[in-house]
Design a binder for these strands. Structure first.
Lengths: 256, 256
DNA sequence: CGCTGTCTTGAGTACGATCAAGTACGGTGG
DNA sequence: CCACCGTACTTGATCGTACTCAAGACAGCG
């Protein structure tokens, strides 16, 4: 009972770390650990093997490597294989705007299809891997498969839906509760431990993402800690009272 | 020189009002006034005529009519033909959250593809018209046409891209300047007068949408008016100093 | 062991929210 | 045509949350 106090450690041993989701031998959609959440979901075997053909993977991304720069020509969709990425822009005053964090199975660069240029920088938070899918080839391939088309639309759709809560008018507490539950839920869907995890992003990233100052994030984390909602030490977070958090985040989560 | 002072009235006579974009006789994609911005853009004649087949139109929508309710089953995409719509949710405390305003050629309900239920209420702001496109039929049809698939993805993509600026951390002045320029630009693309127009939504809708209080919107409008950026009287807005507004909205607009 | 960057904690401040009148407009009916 | 009413908008005064500035604690690392 040293660290994981206040919560069962039922997920302790079987849950993989977010960085370990893509074993070296699964360089294709057909064997991908997050296939069920990604582009391939709902595709038949034939489509799957053609997806494998147009797929380019890179599993050797080290922490803090910028994988996309704003203005880069858009060639294809980027899917996260493992690890976590942050997308952001820097305005002319040098101020950063964090647009989002991307987990395995999620697509990056969807907003670049229209203008054919990437609209944000994307950086790896820790070691990570990704796939790229050439857009015109994907467009071709999607003519053959109803399932693939549907899945692409669904991925777009859920991205749009998940965007809405951030624009609402919520308090710092509501935002952070919703943020923590969002991260937790995304980890869960990937088979990771959703009760006890490491935040891969810094306090200032979180604050920037949520429209709050770094200090406010720190303070709310501290308050949640003393109130028994979570146990937080630096980047390590344990969800102690999920219901309490949900209660706080209620107004926000109704948007989903 | 009674009302349109300070700005040329070059767009005065030839610009249609936003409510008058869909003449009664153009009930099909092929003859639609906003076809170039909507689903049909980039489709060949054959696809266009098949689009016409799966299209259902309704041009007799009166003001304040709710056309979609949150939780409604998702059957297909809704495209605005004429007028303007507002999408919003009401949380359990009865507080409204305005998610967006929709102009002719724009799609509504994209975020419902994934969960198969609409995630927001949609109401007409004044008399309006819309089209609905059955999703499964559209999915089928899109297998035949690269152009249609591409256009659908682009519409999704631009929707995602245009979402980002609202989440950033900006002042009331920046938000409202960006809002006015956004409306103006959308009117322009539809061939309407972009210098002198009527806001179809109320101050409280604008405030809610931008995360500001009604009173703040009113005050900023008033300040912009005295500073010579705009002439505003009730719902009527004239853009007097576009550069000034752009300057204010710079930080925001970089996100686009 | 001290250096560096990240995080935490504290004190004062500001921007926009809230509360509260007051005003203009559009609609209705006399 | 005008008096009336209700709603939307404007304007003013006060308040509160989260920002800013500032200092200190902690972890990681040479």
């Amino acid at each position: 009972m040293d660290k994981a106090r206040g919560v069962s450690n039922r997920h302790q041993q079987e849950s993989p770390d977010i960085g370990r989701l893509a074993p070296k031998d699964a360089l294709r959609c057909s064997g991908c650990a997050v296939g069920g959440l990604c582009v391939a979901a709902g595709s038949d075997a034939a489509t799957l093997s053609r997806l494998d053909e147009i797929l380019r993977t890179d599993d050797s991304i080290d922490g803090s490597r910028i994988v996309i720069r704003k203005g880069d020509p858009f060639n294809g969709l980027i899917a996260v294989r493992s690890g976590c990425f942050k997308s952001f822009t820097i305005d002319r005053d040098g101020r950063e705007q964090v647009q989002g964090f991307h987990f395995p199975g999620e697509l990056i660069g969807l907003d670049a299809i229209d203008g054919k240029r990437h609209r944000a920088d994307v950086i790896a938070l820790g070691s990570a891997g990704l796939c790229s899918l050439d857009y015109s080839q994907l467009l071709q391939l999607s003519s053959c498969s109803d399932g693939l088309r549907d899945q692409l639309f669904r991925l777009f759709s859920s991205k749009l839906a998940n965007q809405n809560w951030r624009t609402g008018d919520y308090t710092a507490d509501e935002r952070i509760a919703a943020f923590l539950l969002d991260i937790s839920e995304r980890l869960e869907r990937r088979g990771c431990n959703s009760e006890d995890f490491e935040l891969l992003m810094s306090r200032s990233d979180i604050g920037n993402y949520l429209g709050l100052a770094t200090e406010t994030v720190s303070r709310v984390f501290g308050r949640f800690n003393t109130n028994g909602y979570i146990t937080v030490k630096r980047k390590r977070v344990i969800i102690d009272d999920r219901d309490g958090l949900s209660n706080l985040a209620d107004a926000v989560l109704e948007q989903l």
